[in-house]
Design a protein around this nucleic acid. Structure first.
Lengths: 353, 353
DNA sequence: AAAATTAATGTAATCGATTACACAAGTATA
DNA sequence: TATACTTGTGTAATCGATTACATTAATTTT
């Protein structure tokens, strides 16, 4: 009986409990806790100290219901076990946690139905904003309409889609690819293949275009048959390179739009008894940690993911706090950095001379 | 003016709007939507169809406030850019999404203050449960007391701490380590070193104990100087192995409690011009994808992380739905599987004969 | 046909915090 | 001293959904 009583007593303290304790009303307590300037210093102190004594904690659900804000933000990524996305998320967290937001992470595994489902359930969970990297640019856009309708800020990072009024934070994929390809050309490569990917996504289209432009700008012949669309998976990279090596006139370099397929490429090349980088040079994209730790380290393009996440979060904060519904969308483009490693370095850099 | 009006009209439809539309009360609408048996078939249909027509969506915050459930579950991991934790989370999601729960993921980066902070903010966000892998077993347990006080189900996975009444899902680390060590012995290794880790965590203590027992059971000399505590990082593995190789009587095998330090070990061994597995065999732990994809693939212990996540989620569901406050805690232990690869396979298996 | 059930819906309180508006007491101004 | 501000609190509605407890109408039982 006594235990039961104690049990019931464990209910969370509310502002009403505090009000009763200090002999004021809940309204005053609420104002005191929120540092409303209309409250006298004496009352504020009394209330805040009593609140602490009584282990008061604000019921965020009630606040959310009243204010219409949940302080939850949805983040949607294709997958989170790649260092790139994990790092973007870390950047977002670093920026948002100090402001009292929580982050709900969803993975689409590149499936459109999961993407749509995630968006809907995030909206339903009353998130205050959605930061996402889309999986498929061809997906029906009515989900995006419903985000807009609810006036939930939407920010794209890395993989975006052109939607009027929606901000984005991306890297200059064209330039990253251009640099990578130029580097291969400078190493003496003449027939550079490109492992592309779903080009309905801007990132892959731009990597393709940057690659192509570098080839053309340096007077090499652009051969469309050296461009193959594949997936960002080790085994897919292997399969694709197997095909390339069967050509009568095989490539002497591979620029992959993904580190994972670059790794597969390297495995396949070695299996064919060819040397890297002497016979075939390889460059990947994303600077995943393994590229550095391989026995044969892989040249790759760094995308500064943590910074990308932080900036995306900052854009969200700006949009969510702005009272003006007529927001201008921001398009922020970061510059990538080519990290040169074993898999492509044939010529000693002039710097070492 | 008209646009402003349309804008205001965009407010979400509530059960009151539906009630007005069909000429009933909100209570009836609520019941009809929840398939309460007291509602007539005709009304139920009418209400549900009207709801659909009006694009009604339940306000989860209101439901949460009333019911005391947020349908959010917190998941705390040291980091999520390891395949192991990412996969556990995927398993949790697979089990929880269909039940209408959302998952809030927090990372501790192995810092105690972040761990405590995450727990507090999850509790404050009214999560219905916390699934976690602890970072530091020595951390003050008052945070755990506050979880218990709030009657929020807590389930440990992988890295647990002994707390009365708290369930856990782990793997048999002792056995995993025993199998790995036994395998090395069967390959002819005599001086097996162990890259250990913070042994205040049960997982690392048990891997150490399994290793030790296998050594003893097979009549080898147990040499404490071959056990070195390090961190689950590539560079830490390198550093540690550098020390081991300087010994007057260096090891002929390394059993690492982590794939990452195993990778560092391999790099360091190769840098010393030694052959793997001929001179030194290496076995890791966790079966991270890279262990399979390395040029020299790495033998490792698989922990079936997706299953671990699914089971942890199921335990949570059972606890959260149980009305009985006197819950028995469950301790579920999964069996690991040794995956033998290049880094330790000197002797051709008899099966191939 | 009166009494007792059953079925379907309505009334109103509730979850906890916020806030527009009202009001009283104190201070400043004319 | 009467009038006009301040300052600090209280009152009560609100956010949207749920649910114990009426209440009414329809059906069954005796």
């Amino acid at each position: 009986m006594f235990i039961l009583y104690l049990n019931l007593m464990k209910k969370k303290t509310t502002i009403y409990d505090i009000a009763k304790e200090v002999g004021l009303t809940a309204a005053t307590v609420s104002r005191a806790l929120n540092n409303n300037p209309k409250i006298s210093e004496k009352t504020r102190k009394l209330v805040q100290e009593t609140a602490k004594k009584m282990n008061y904690e604000q019921n965020t659900l009630a606040r959310a219901l009243k204010s219409g804000k949940s302080y939850n933000v949805g983040v949607i990524v294709p997958r989170m076990d790649s260092n790139f996305f994990a790092s973007v998320i870390r950047g977002i967290e670093e920026e948002l946690y100090p402001k009292g937001y929580h982050v709900i992470i969803c993975q689409t595994h590149d499936q459109e139905n999961l993407e749509t489902g995630n968006i809907n359930s995030l909206l339903n969970a009353q998130v205050d904003g959605i930061l996402m990297s889309i999986s498929n640019a061809k997906s029906k856009s009515n989900v995006f309409d419903s985000i807009a309708q609810k006036k939930v800020p939407l920010i794209f990072f890395d993989r975006k889609k052109e939607i009027p009024g929606v901000s984005s934070v991306t890297i200059d994929d064209f330039n990253g690819a251009y640099q990578a390809t130029k580097h291969l050309i400078e190493q003496g490569c003449k027939r550079i293949a490109h492992l592309s990917n779903n080009r309905s996504l801007e990132i892959f289209k731009n990597r393709y275009l940057g690659y192509k432009q570098a080839i053309i700008d340096h007077g090499l012949e652009f051969d469309e048959s050296l461009v193959i669309e594949t997936f960002s998976k080790v085994l897919e990279g292997r399969k694709t390179v197997k095909k390339l090596l069967k050509m009568k006139n095989p490539p002497d370099a591979i620029f992959s739009s993904s580190d994972f397929s670059a790794l597969g490429a390297i495995q396949e090349i070695k299996d064919h008894g060819l040397r890297i980088p002497e016979d075939i040079s390889v460059v990947g994209f994303s600077n995943e940690p393994f590229t550095k730790f391989m026995e044969l380290s892989i040249t790759s393009v760094d995308q500064s993911p943590i910074e990308m996440g932080r900036i995306a979060a900052k854009v969200f904060l700006k949009e969510v706090d702005s009272k003006t519904p007529k927001k201008e969308s921001e398009k922020i483009v970061l510059q990538p950095e080519l990290i040169i490693r074993d898999s492509s370095l044939k010529v000693k850099s002039e710097a070492s001379a």
